[in-house]
Design a protein around this nucleic acid. Structure first.
Lengths: 235, 235
DNA sequence: GTGACGCATAAGTCTGACTTTTTGTTCCCG
DNA sequence: CGGGAACAAAAAGTCAGACTTATGCGTCAC
């Protein structure tokens, strides 16, 4: 699924990153590179590289004579797929899942509208294929197969929008859908209404009906948000 | 404005990052760490740290026996504020500005709607203050003063939405607005209609009128998008 | 033509010494 | 007693060099 500990510094990150995003080190905490290097049993060079990466994610700040200080959560690069994965693996997955789904509610309908205008014939075909795949896996405890087609579907729509910023959210959506399937105890079979909506979106995009594609997609993501609210109560 | 070359590796990044995002090295190009270290007159350790950061942005991939290969643009972490800054400084600023503005069109209206429900009294006050500041700087070649209040306004709305993913787009919006003011030759004074809309959004948020706040904000960002289209023709 | 072997290569890792910056303390003078 | 300057310590930053490891690619045998 994700990149498996590329190199020594990668393994350190896989351990230290989640610890920080989980809030194990409160904002302002200071870590010393040497101590970390000893703790993880790596050389200072390796630990320095790991710290540099954390710094580029704005998770920590490294200052001379002070050490590596943990930054407050509101400064983190929360769009970094790695950070997203770390946070989804952590304790406050529900809140994370919710804020990401709200983002989907804003972005995906607009993306679908653009896709209806810009999608190539090939993309339309792939979209229909995915929708049919979802239908085929919608009954009988085939959640994994359903997930694959669901992810592919939304990825295609985002790509077909022609907007690069939207396209890059494909990974985010994939993580959200995977998290929902694997950790939230989803109902045994997906909501039939959602399946139908996906098929209709594929049709609307093929027909070039932007407003319909947008509206249908909005129903999908708002539905996803409501499902979240059912499973975890919110104010 | 941005962080000024923190440390030696930071200075390398400031030179190498923009070069890559500008497409000076086509996708698949291979760079060797040693050669880069010589070129920038730094030690291998420093260059390795720089490469690690570029790798965490998915701009390059480092593999044994091969070297550091440049990844295709569609794999870059385009939400990384640093990457955004590099690309906005580069040659295809227009396209970049456009795709970011489309993102604003999707996100900001929804954020404004949420802000109308969640904003605190203090945030409402700040919002009104910003709107008044925009009015005060809307005539007489006071673009800089206008920009400051404009940025603050949108930042407050995004923060007040209560959604962390939206909040973190404040920096992106700031870059877009700054880029528009400084590089696109904006009209001498901002569009009066836009100024009015900002005032009305502040009112709607204060009144807790979500749908109105959303609709007015949509008018603002769609207007911004149209301004872009006027200045640079698009299909 | 195909597969196994080996070599050259470039990244990866480690160590140790040295430099630089910054913080906090101390001490002197007003 | 207060303030500022000098000083010392601490931690990151930088560098150079040696060694390790994985791997792409060419070679050679079959």
């Amino acid at each position: 699924m994700s990149t498996p500990g590329r190199g020594l510094h990668g393994r350190v990150l896989e351990s230290l990153g989640p610890a920080i995003t989980a809030g194990e080190y409160p904002p302002g905490s200071v870590l010393r590179t040497d101590e970390l290097a000893q703790r993880f049993e790596v050389s200072r060079s390796v630990m320095r590289e790991a710290v540099r990466v954390l710094e580029s994610m704005h998770l920590v700040e490294s200052r001379r004579r002070v050490g590596v200080t943990v930054r407050p959560a509101n400064e983190w690069n929360v769009y970094d797929p790695q950070v997203i994965r770390w946070r989804l693996a952590g304790a406050d997955r529900p809140r994370q899942l919710r804020s990401l789904t709200v983002l989907r509610c804003a972005v995906e309908p607009v993306a679908a509208g653009l896709a209806a205008k810009h999608a190539t014939a090939e993309q339309c075909a792939e979209l229909t294929e995915c929708a049919l795949g979802m239908v085929a896996n919608s009954r009988g405890h085939k959640l994994e197969g359903y997930l694959v087609h669901d992810v592919a579907f939304h990825r295609i729509v985002l790509n077909a929008s022609g907007n690069e910023m939207f396209a890059r959210l494909g990974d985010v959506v994939a993580e959200v859908l995977a998290g929902r399937t694997h950790h939230q105890v989803m109902f045994e079979d997906p909501d039939p209404a959602a399946v139908t909506l996906h098929v209709q979106v594929a049709e609307a995009v093929r027909a070039g009906d932007a407003v319909r594609a947008e509206e249908l997609t909005r129903e999908i993501v708002v539905g996803a948000l409501q499902e979240l609210d059912i499973l975890s109560p919110e104010s």
